[in-house]
Nucleic acid binder design. Structure first.
Lengths: 257, 257
DNA sequence: ATGCGGCTTTGATCCATATCAAAAGGAAAA
DNA sequence: TTTTCCTTTTGATATGGATCAAAGCCGCAT
């Protein structure tokens, strides 16, 4: 069974916020007061939801959702990062997204999963059987609304990514990605630019980056090098980027005329 | 105000079907008994929903959803076809989907619309203000479930498209598209192949096709010509395709090894 | 019928990115 | 420290699809 702490956040960056529960109690696990879904629920409701979840711990590299398999579960990530992807028989891979702590996952599925999911590092998550979560909806309609919000936000991101994959050049893809990643890390509010010289962790291999952006690792590397040469970013080490001139980055990303 | 007929179908091809209303009355407009959402509702509920919708008629070429504008409405298409797309300032365009009769539209939006929508021919649709539809949820939770199903199905399609745009070759994109279009036209059930020599209407310009598949019109034309040369399809006229050998098409689309 | 204009196809060439190859880090083991 | 192995960067070359150009096709108005 899962704890309040583990359920506390159903994906932070949502387009529509639910009202906070005014007198939320502090978390049994960590003492903090959690934002997100839980604050919209009563204690009884929370208890109800908690019973529907199993806690799971995954080693790095574990593929815990398999494309094409029967879609049996939803997941809420508490710790670690997950790669979502689709593959072709000859090994080509398209990463469709990355999910970190607070992300809710499993919506892109009908009868069967449309994607695979793999732990990038040590991952802890809450697992809900689809049937039990659907049953919970009867008691907690607010949860269904929350899921709809999550799905709608996913759709916005998916359409952005289609524009990127279908119509942007390599350097535009890299620039777009860096800015989107900054938003994701909450280095800046959605739709705003980060401050000049903002520092950003980027815990992805070049291979992941390439498979997410529809490029090869060589092109990713070359594009990053070019942005560095042009003084728009700096790369102190492989997993860190300094956004020296975010404005310039944004002009490239949006193909400003 | 909209009629039962106009509301009768909230997008046909759904991954999860709602139970039919056993004793659905026939449609006031057309006399037929409609499948889809309406059959899951009582007459009172239907009446309630009907009041929340305005009927709208659009001339070909009308852009009735503008990317970046405040997202105020959802739409349910009754007649005609719609292009959904995103653009870059220099005119590059990525079509993210096509919506025909029965399609529900407007989910890919947070505060603002993530896409634009344009009537491809004469379109009739029902328009719901977001606020009023949200209000309807209180009375008709089944509607919210339905919308979640629609959104989940959209996500499945979006991920398929990301794989196509990020990792498939031109000819694979064309082959994938033709099979997906056949499913959409219900020439074959989802996940199955059409019968050999199935005939298919394709009411899209090469430009639309190119902007949907992330290619140029020349490449679209060349790829279609090649499939024709190889005896896999036939093209009796611009807006009609014969799927001579669907199995071969599928092997190309899925990059079978 | 004839001619015009827009779409589509086909051909020739170019170029952005992939592919192939090798050198340069950088972390962990010996 | 040195070696090994793996990832990343950089360089050289190839190529799939874009771009540029022209010819075909077809509907429509005259």
């Amino acid at each position: 069974m899962a704890t309040l702490h583990e359920l506390s956040e159903f994906r932070r960056p949502l387009p529509i916020n639910l009202a906070n529960r005014p007198t939320a109690s502090n978390c049994d696990d960590c003492g903090a007061r959690h934002s997100g879904l839980c604050n919209a629920l009563t204690d009884d409701e929370l208890e109800f939801l908690t019973r529907a979840a199993q806690r799971v711990s995954l080693a790095p590299g574990t593929v815990f959702v398999e494309e094409g398999e029967k879609a049996s579960y939803f997941y809420n990530i508490n710790q670690g990062n997950v790669r979502l992807f689709k593959s072709l028989p000859d090994g080509r891979r398209q990463i469709t997204g990355f999910a970190g702590p607070g992300y809710f996952l499993g919506l892109a599925a009908g009868e069967n999963n449309a994607f695979s999911a793999e732990a990038m590092d040590h991952v802890k998550l809450c697992r809900f059987s689809r049937a039990s979560l659907m049953a919970v909806f009867e008691e907690l309609p607010v949860l269904e609304r929350k899921l709809l919000d999550v799905a709608m936000h996913e759709l916005v991101l998916a359409q952005q990514q289609m524009l990127l994959l279908g119509r942007k050049t390599a350097i535009e893809r890299i620039a777009s990605f860096l800015l989107a990643w900054a938003e994701r890390l909450e280095i800046c509010p959605a739709g705003r630019l980060p401050a000049p010289n903002a520092v950003m962790k980027l815990p992805l291999s070049r291979t992941d980056l390439a498979d997410y952006l529809g490029l090869t690792i060589e092109t990713v590397s070359r594009s990053l090098s070019q942005l560095k040469r042009d003084g728009i970013i700096d790369i102190p080490n492989i997993h860190e980027i300094i956004l020296t001139r975010p404005r310039a980055l944004s002009e490239i990303a949006e193909a400003a005329v």
